[in-house]
Simulated scan of single mutants.
Amino acid sequence: MSEQPADPQQEKDSPSLLHRVESHILGAAIVALVLLAAWQIIRRALFNEAWIHADGLIRQSVLWLAVLGALAATGRRKHIAIELDPKADQRPWAAWKSRLVSLISAAFCATLAWYGWRLVELERDGGMELLPGLPMWCSLLILPIGFGLMALRFGWQSIVAAKAETP
């Protein structure tokens, strides 16, 4: 019996371990958010009571999901992008344009990470709590960490992995 060689396109399309882990984390977080929101609605409707910290936790969970989703999208190069020249990918300088766009995106995300850190510092001085014993600034750590990781991903793409993709 001879084994057939693996299809290179199939290997390219199969998600890496990191992408699978990201997808599972995002999926679990979405399920947890929906269950928490449903539980809060049921408690209010049926028992005329609510968990006082649920609304803040739901808001922070949405922030985490948005940043983690954006991080996953950047890793797959499926993020929102504004294309000024739709035919640019067919030109000889398309790879350089892709690298430049990735470099600008890295700088932008690094700036957002820095401002996210400044927000964490301000919130740390404020002393508010998300949950009893959990300061609000801990929940905002996703901003500098998430945007910092996005800056690294865009930076990596601008140096090594940026390729002109044809439609």
Results as ranks from 00 to 15, higher is better:
Ser2Arg: 15
Glu3Ser: 11
Gln4Asp: 09
Asp7Leu: 10
Asp7Trp: 12
Asp7Pro: 09
Gln10Glu: 14
Lys12Met: 14
Pro15Asn: 06
Leu17Asn: 12
His19Val: 08
Glu22Trp: 14
His24Pro: 01
Ile25Arg: 03
Leu26Asn: 07
Leu26Gln: 06
Leu26Pro: 02
Ala29Pro: 01
Ala29Asp: 04
Ile30Gly: 06
Val31Phe: 13
Val31Ser: 09
Val31Leu: 15
Ala32Arg: 10
Ala38Glu: 01
Trp39Leu: 10
Ile42Asn: 02
Arg43Tyr: 04
Arg44Ala: 14
Leu46Thr: 10
His53Glu: 11
Ala54Leu: 05
Ala54Cys: 06
Asp55Gly: 06
Leu57Tyr: 01
Gln60Arg: 02
Ser61Ile: 07
Val62Ser: 06
Val62Arg: 00
Leu63Tyr: 01
Leu65Gln: 05
Ala70Pro: 00
Ala73Asn: 05
Gly75Ser: 08
Lys78Glu: 15
Ile82Pro: 02
Ala88Asn: 01
Ala88Gln: 05
Asp89Ser: 12
Trp96Tyr: 08
Lys97Cys: 05
Ser98Ile: 02
Ser98Gly: 13
Ser98Asn: 13
Ser98Tyr: 03
Arg99Asn: 02
Val101Trp: 09
Ser105Glu: 04
Cys109Ala: 15
Ala110Asp: 05
Thr111Trp: 11
Thr111Ser: 10
Thr111Val: 09
Leu112Val: 08
Trp114Cys: 10
Tyr115Val: 04
Tyr115Trp: 14
Gly116Ser: 13
Gly116Ile: 04
Trp117Gln: 09
Arg118Ser: 14
Arg118Gly: 05
Leu119Asn: 10
Leu119Phe: 14
Val120Trp: 03
Glu121Pro: 00
Glu121Thr: 09
Gly127Thr: 10
Glu129Pro: 05
Gly133Phe: 07
Gly133Arg: 05
Cys138Glu: 07
Pro144Asn: 09
Gly148Val: 06
Met150Gly: 01
Leu152Arg: 04
Leu152Gln: 00
Leu152Cys: 08
Arg153Gly: 00
Gly155Tyr: 01
Trp156Ile: 03
Ser158Gly: 09
Val160Ile: 13
Lys163Cys: 06
Glu165His: 14
Thr166Glu: 07
Pro167Phe: 11
